[in-house]
Design a binder for these strands. Structure first.
Length: 289
DNA sequence: AGTTAAACCTGGTTGC
DNA sequence: TGCAACCAGGTTTAAC
């Protein structure tokens, strides 16, 4: 369930170990959401830079290192250029950093073998992606990131700006949070949880949210994401951190996945309804329009 | 601009 | 036990 907390947990697990690592080889399994966009062999000999996160994407910068041994000038497959890999975990993806990688399993669709271990993408549903881009601000990376809204913890995202952005949207606030073009990071779980914490009905039109309630929603979103980050994210089925450890936030979800159960706050019944093709969980007593 | 559906995939759970 | 239907963390594209 990679939403922002899960992706950030993943980033924190690989950033330090892989910074400065040398790529020894790479391997592709079954196709992911998009083609890699480069020859896997061209990744060989690259050095890994500082890994950053933008929304639910990870950017793994790569730049050529001095070759360990002179490459044959006639080898057309190897033409290392600087750039990087844009990764997305989709619905079921997770990354592992393996000191000694066993043979790839059925759902292991990308390996980046380095001198500090193998970065392996495990993704049963294959909605995830690994895409080469010459730079973060050039296509295809820039295209994929172009529609993303503000980072939730960006200090520039003030309550005033958040409220102003919501004022421009007539869609239900739950749909606006999921769309990620106002603020990134909340997926289905954390959008539901943040709205519950803020006491806002998920079907309320975004432009009908008052300034005080927008302030409360932004605070709720931040505390929800921060709390999830502290607990290693949520593991519904597939997600683990890079060491294989599952998250535990799902156990403290107030509404997500709790349809028919008692609301932890008022004792009413948690409802489930479908919004934008996704299940929305909420308490009609605590969350007002 | 909106909402809505369909698409991409696999697998676990539920219900008859 | 078998099998069909439905559900699941995301995002893009097309259609009304």
């Amino acid at each position: 369930m990679p939403e922002l907390p899960e992706v950030e947990v993943t980033r924190r697990g690989i950033a330090a170990p892989l910074q400065g690592a040398r790529v020894l080889s790479a391997r592709l399994g079954k196709p992911l959401r998009w083609p890699l966009g480069c020859d896997v062999d061209s990744l060989r000999g690259q050095g890994v830079g500082a890994i950053i996160r933008r929304g639910k994407y990870l950017w793994l910068p790569l730049a050529p290192l001095e070759p360990l041994e002179p490459l044959a000038p006639s080898d057309p497959a190897v033409h290392a250029a600087s750039g990087g890999l844009l990764l997305h975990l989709g619905m079921s993806g997770s990354l592992a950093l393996l000191p000694l990688a066993p043979p790839p399993g059925l759902h292991d669709h990308f390996d980046l073998v380095t001198d500090r271990g193998t970065l392996r993408l495990h993704d049963p549903r294959r909605f995830g992606a690994v895409v080469w881009s010459d730079a973060l601000d050039q296509a295809p990376a820039a295209t994929l990131l172009a529609r993303l809204g503000a980072e939730p913890f960006d200090a520039l995202l003030t309550p005033e700006r958040f409220h102003a952005a919501l004022q421009g949207r007539r869609a239900p606030v739950k749909a606006v949070l999921l769309a990620g073009d106002v603020v990134v990071g909340a997926g289905n779980i954390y959008a539901c949880e943040a709205l519950f914490q803020a006491g806002i009905h998920p079907a309320l039109r975004a432009d009908r949210i008052s300034r005080p309630r927008a302030t409360r929603l932004l605070a709720a979103l931040r505390t929800t994401l921060a709390r999830a980050l502290e607990t290693g994210g949520s593991t519904l089925r597939d997600f683990t951190d890079v060491h294989g450890v599952a998250g535990s936030y799902q156990a403290q979800a107030a509404v997500y996945g709790r349809a028919g159960q008692a609301c932890v706050r008022c004792g009413g019944t948690v409802q489930r309804r479908v919004q934008a093709q996704r299940s929305t969980y909420f308490c009609a007593g605590c969350q007002r329009r």
